[in-house]
């Protein structure tokens, strides 16, 4: 579904992505793990059109169409069904919870369908229905994460980019979020997940890629990487 080839991205003078290549297959849950500054978020920002690569390509195939993400505007990328739920949630603090969810559906024209999705989101996160008219900035961190994910779902993603959904959240909330991620996968949404909690990510991932210094250094299934010595030492905190 997604084919990333030899992506080189600079931020200012810094060469952040150095020839990144990987694939995500239709319906797969792929995890991208690596240390801070390895280039994970930069990869996602490039895929959603907010950063432009110096060279390389990123091709999204959906419904028989083939789109070069490195040339499309972020608006067209959203319309194509590639939805990015960014690091740090980035919800609209001054807008109400309901307005935040409506912003997620910004590109959706079918009001009836939006209402249906809204109900699904409210079933997944009942608290969002209760707090519909509250300013989103006044919610707790976990609730704000639910707004961010709910907002992404209202965009009807074919492929979802999730950047650190568990960062700074209480373990119980993290479990809820991971449940939702797995439920999404079961409905056929392709997911690319960045996670600092590598153990949890590898447990649910079909495929995983390890990123170091702007390159993919290791790829495999979640299980393979979870049993790989190097990964165990560096990312899972297991002594050799």
């Amino acid at each position: 579904m997604l084919e990333v080839r030899d992506l080189n991205v600079y931020r200012g003078a810094t060469h952040v992505l150095k020839g990144v290549s990987f694939d995500v297959r239709q319906g797969q849950l792929a995890a991208l793990i690596g240390a801070n500054g390895a280039g994970k978020s930069t990869t996602l920002l490039t895929l959603s059109g907010l950063l432009r690569p110096r060279s390389g390509s990123a091709t999204l195939r959906t419904d028989g169409a083939e789109l070069d993400l490195t040339r499309l505007s972020s608006e067209k990328i959203v319309r194509a069904g590639l939805i990015h739920c960014p690091e740090g949630r980035q919800i609209f603090q001054s807008l109400s919870v309901a307005e935040n969810l409506d912003m997620g559906a910004y590109t959706q024209r079918d009001r009836a369908e939006v209402c249906r999705t809204m109900e699904e989101v409210h079933t997944l996160f009942p608290i969002l229905a209760e707090r519909a008219n509250v300013a989103a900035g006044s919610l707790s961190g976990g609730e704000q994460m639910m707004v961010a994910i709910g907002r992404a779902l209202l965009a009807k993603p074919k492929m979802l980019l999730l950047d650190e959904p568990s960062l700074g959240l209480a373990p119980l909330v993290v479990e809820t979020i991971f449940d939702v991620i797995q439920r999404l996968k079961s409905t056929g949404v392709t997911i690319l997940l960045i996670e600092q909690n590598a153990a949890m990510a590898l447990e649910i991932a079909d495929a995983a890629h390890v990123m170091e210094n702007g390159s993919i250094v290791l790829s495999g299934t979640g299980e393979e990487l979870a049993s790989n010595d190097r990964v165990r030492q560096s990312y899972l905190g297991v002594a050799a």
Binding site: S74, V78, P86, F92, Y106, T107
Partner: peptide, 8 residues
């Protein structure tokens, strides 16, 4: 940035 990610 977030608005762009919503497709605005």
């Amino acid at each position: 940035t977030a608005a762009r990610l919503m497709g605005v």
